[in-house]
Every structure is written in structure tokens, then in C-alpha cells.
């Protein structure tokens, strides 16, 4: 779905290495799932390429629920990327 704006959130190590906690993004045409979004972010290069690399263990949530790579994205979604959790 092109023309859709989503909110992206980054936590913990990602937030620090990307130097960003939150951004609004107009999804480019063709970016319709979580895994395509991740590849799109990796294409920014530098720390983005490193943190979003397919080999990196990364978790993601769509609207505050853990989601897999094939999860579809739509306007208004809150999408979060973060390292595997370490609470408790």
C-alpha cells in the first residue's frame, strides 16, 4: 500500500546505534511487509545496513504485537524494531 504513513520505533541497542528512537515514514511503493521494510531501512547504509542486516537477530512488532517478516503493513501502523528481549 503506497501513500501510507507509519510510525517507526527503535529500542535499546538499535536506538543507540541508529541514533534515532522514532520516525514517521511514508511507505514507498512496494514496501508492504515487515521484511521488505527492513530491507528498505538496511539500504540506508552505515549503521542501518549493519543493524538491519538479515543475519542480525532482530525482533519486530506491529501495533505492539510481535510480528513475523510477512506481516502486512498499512497506514497508521506503529512498527517497532528491537533486539531479542532481556527482561526478567
Amino acid at each position: 500500500m503506497s501513500g501510507a504513513t507509519v510510525t517507526l520505533l527503535y529500542f535499546a541497542r538499535l536506538r543507540e546505534s541508529l541514533g534515532l528512537a522514532r520516525e514517521e515514514m511514508l511507505l514507498p511503493a512496494g514496501v508492504q511487509t515487515l521484511q521488505v521494510l527492513r530491507a528498505h531501512l538496511a539500504a540506508r547504509g552505515g549503521a542501518w545496513a549493519e543493524e538491519m542486516a538479515p543475519a542480525r537477530k532482530l525482533r519486530a512488532a506491529v501495533n505492539q504485537t510481535l510480528a513475523q517478516g510477512d506481516a502486512p503493513l498499512k497506514a497508521g501502523d506503529e512498527v517497532a524494531f528491537f533486539p531479542p528481549v532481556t527482561g526478567g
Binding site: 529500542f11 517497532a80 528481549v85 527482561g87 526478567g88
Partner: peptide, 12 residues
């Protein structure tokens, strides 16, 4: 507790 450790979004 087991699920909290692997699913709840906390980072140390």
C-alpha cells in the same frame, strides 16, 4: 516467567 523472559519487551 518463562514467557516474560522471551516475549516482553525489556532490555538490560
Amino acid at each position: 516467567m518463562d514467557y516474560l523472559k522471551t516475549q516482553a519487551p525489556f532490555w538490560k
